[in-house]
Design a binder for these strands. Structure first.
Lengths: 111, 111
DNA sequence: ACAAAATACATAGCAATACAATGTACTTTG
DNA sequence: CAAAGTACATTGTATTGCTATGTATTTTGT
């Protein structure tokens, strides 16, 4: 079970899926990076490596889908909070349309 | 609409999804390469480039998920038909379990 | 009749992305 | 007081889809 091939496949599935999941999480609230990893772990069975998340968030920021702001803590390391932009919101809507179409097709195929 | 980012994203989503779709198509019938592209076009809105399909099928073959056989035509170029192996069948079952879990989580998040 | 498009296979190089490894710095727990 | 946890980040590697290109045959359009 959970053969080598399936493990590699799951990693490939994340390419694309992760951005979609993260934007959906940010649709309702703002979160900081480390917290996003925890949120994803909570809502899915997906474990995001830190070396995956931080570059990914930077890409989303570069593309203008999110903004970020540093929030100093009374104690500890400052947190970088991310918020969806208007561009992010409309992009997410397009992504969802595509995903729903894909999922409908897959549902038929796996039946 | 369908911004640059979304186009790139759709390409990323295919990494992993394509193998899953193709194995599902081969679950019921055997098909040759070019025909698989047509089948995917028919059941989904996905267009698979030939330069994507042939290497992908070779990987699935190398991993033992499919076998292939050449079938000569009365006229024209011979076709390479692919069939699921037992390993392919059980692997597909594992993939489906993962996909269903992922989809359930995404359904909740997009609501 | 002949050019263009379609069928059917394939490979090479490029770009994008997840991950392991590693690093820094502070706080909490055992 | 050491280990684990929190919170940020970067670098190099492996995988994979895509474009471009190539070969060979058949069908379609004019």
């Amino acid at each position: 079970m959970n053969s080598e091939f399936v493990q590699k496949w799951q990693s490939q599935v994340k390419k694309g899926t992760l951005a979609f999941i993260l934007l959906n999480i940010l649709k309702d609230n703002e979160f900081y990076g480390y917290e996003l990893i925890e949120q994803v772990r909570k809502y899915t069975t997906i474990e995001i490596a830190e070396g995956t998340l931080y570059p990914l968030m930077n890409r989303l920021k570069k593309e203008g889908l999110v903004t970020s702001k540093w929030v100093e803590q009374e104690s500890g390391i400052p947190r970088k909070y991310y918020q969806l932009t208007n561009v992010g919101i409309s992009t997410l809507a397009e992504m969802r349309t595509y995903w729903d179409g894909l999922e409908t097709a897959i549902q038929k195929l796996t039946k």
